[in-house]
Amino acid sequence: MIAYVIRRLFTGVVLLLVVSLATFVIFFVVPRLAGASPDTLASRYVGKAPTPQAVQAVKERLGLDDPLIVQYGRFVKGIVAGNEYKAGNDVVLCNTPCFGYSFRNSVEVWPQLMDRLPVTASLAAGAALLWLLAGVSIGVVSALRRGSFFDRLGMTTALAGVSLPVFFTGLVSLALFSYYWEIFPAGGSYTPITENPGLWAYSLVLPWCTLAFLYAAMYARLTRAGMLDTMNEDYIRTARAKGLREGAVVTRHGLRAALTPIVTIFGLDLGLMLGGAVLTESTFGLPGMGKLAVDAIRGSDLPIVLGVTMFTAFFVVIANIIVDLLYAVIDPRVRLG
């Protein structure tokens, strides 16, 4: 068990390195291949007065003249051991884990990520709760009453749900609930839960529902398919033949097996979402990780983009490990090892 976790953590670290390397390649190697020199890269981070001296200074400060491998090494070292940065009269110490400083505003990346995390976490947690409850229960009921009116209605709605882009649903719900009926606030009015829990929930209702609609639809379809599959299995027939009550058959045998793939996907989805629900945050103007990343990509602010992608990959790794541990609980056939 412990060996298993350690092994998973190790592969997780490898995964994180790969993700960071890929991000780094996209921002620094691909442009180089496309003909950009360290000078043109540096000129992206100079303010509105790109004098040659300024470009030179930025190049030195960001170390853009160093070989790519050295630049990448510096980034990895920062995460593990922290880094020192020159900031004029002071030398600033950036503690572990140090993701460096934004190329744009010279603000440390880590606190910026920590700033945005609560927003994204609030969004993800609320939406996940909604879609798990709605999606799984609709899926189960639909499977058990296959062909019924409920099944048809549920599955039609679910199909519509997976066919609607979240930024469109978001806009329509904003137009209806915020502009015409004035029930919920317009986009962007996020209040931290620590400040006012009521307002926090109120301001997130629309984003939660928008996001949950999409995912609930996917989960309802998955759950239904999984349930139908398992309920056809021999062991279910056996259980029934043994004279178990239908309720017990469904919950103890059917649901258990049908839930395993759902749990895997849920882990992955939640992990990815903690790294930013890019489209939902953009549509509702929520200052979360996704919006931070999109803005950073637009400004070629590599340290921030790296920070967000690493963060996301980290959550996915953790979520996967937790999911695998949960497996053993849900599905008795699975043994870790």
């Binding site: 991000t23 489209l279 996301t312």
Partner: peptide, 21 residues
Amino acid sequence: MDVFLAFPLLLFAMSLAGVIP
């Protein structure tokens, strides 16, 4: 394939599409 599935795809696609001349 696991690595790909752990990627924030949208962000990567955005970044990549943005740096190609």
